[in-house]
């Protein structure tokens, strides 16, 4: 369980995350949706201690992420962010091996090698193992980063807009992979999504934010509705049921 208590962040006068209190579950897929500037990414950055909070507490299974030793938090929680692009010359395998750092501190144990091999296999990267990451396509590179997070083997995996710059083949592939992680390995996946339909189809729970506040929180049936989505995005939606999934249309 991740407990977020009265978390606040503001830049000058502008409040980005406004006194948010939430509990994130210890398994399943949880999506954060909302318009640009709603505070989703900021919230996720604070939960993962990359960004300091102005006020509030985040604890992961009782561990205060801002105060506990960083190496202890790294065994429970990992985050994958889109923007940070590494300049280091490393191969896919080396990148994935970095995921073992919280456990091994640079000395890989046999257990580490097994975890790395499993992560590579799981993300379908076996053929690309020795390729430098800067030679990979966007989708392959994203899979490599997911594999690194997988090798870190934390219960909680946070992903900030993981579908950015992916075509639909790779986006769907990645969402299927994340769903499998939650179902087969019992992990708790928390991700920021811009496409409400991916959120609808793959999530157990959807948290909708607007102007720094959580405005809707629940399973897809209660959040992917014309009323709730209209409220979050301030535009018109029509929600259809297609083969058991709730699909929102907003193109006209």
């Amino acid at each position: 369980m991740i407990t977020i208590d009265s978390l606040t962040k503001s830049y000058d006068e502008h409040v980005v995350v406004n006194d948010v209190s939430l509990q994130l579950p210890d398994s399943g897929v949880t999506s954060l949706i909302g318009p640009n500037g709603a505070g989703k990414s900021t919230l996720l950055s604070m939960v993962s201690r990359i960004l300091g909070a102005d006020a509030g507490v985040v604890s992961v299974e009782g561990l205060d992420v801002f105060k506990a030793p960083s190496k202890d938090v790294a065994k429970k929680l990992s985050i994958l962010r889109q923007d940070a692009h590494t300049t280091a010359r490393i191969t896919v395998r080396e990148l994935v091996e970095f995921g073992r750092y919280p456990h091994s501190h640079g000395r890989l144990t046999p257990e580490c090698h097994a975890a790395v091999a499993e992560a590579l296999e799981y993300c379908d990267l076996v053929d690309l193992t020795d390729r430098p990451i800067h030679q990979l396509s966007g989708g392959q590179r994203q899979r490599a980063y997911v594999a690194m997070v997988l090798a870190q083997d934390t219960r909680y995996v946070l992903l900030d807009e993981p579908l950015n710059n992916l075509d639909m083949v790779h986006a769907t592939g990645l969402m299927q992979l994340l769903r499998r992680l939650a179902d087969e390995k019992g992990k708790s996946i928390v991700l920021v999504l811009h496409d409400v339909n991916y959120a609808s189809v793959y999530s157990d729970r959807i948290i909708a934010m607007r102007d720094g506040d959580v405005v809707h929180d629940g399973p897809p049936e209660t959040v992917i509705t014309e009323g709730a989505l209209g409220d979050v995005y301030d535009m018109e939606f029509s929600v259809h049921t297609l083969g058991g999934d709730r699909i929102a249309a907003y193109f006209r």
Binding site: S48, R49, I50, S70, K71, D72, V73, A74, K75, S78, I79, R81, A84, H85, T86, A88, F98, G99, Y101, P102, Q152
Partner: peptide
């Protein structure tokens, strides 16, 4: 790997 990944890795 960059500041953020370094923090994530503990």
């Amino acid at each position: 790997l960059g500041r953020e990944r370094a923090i994530t890795l503990g």
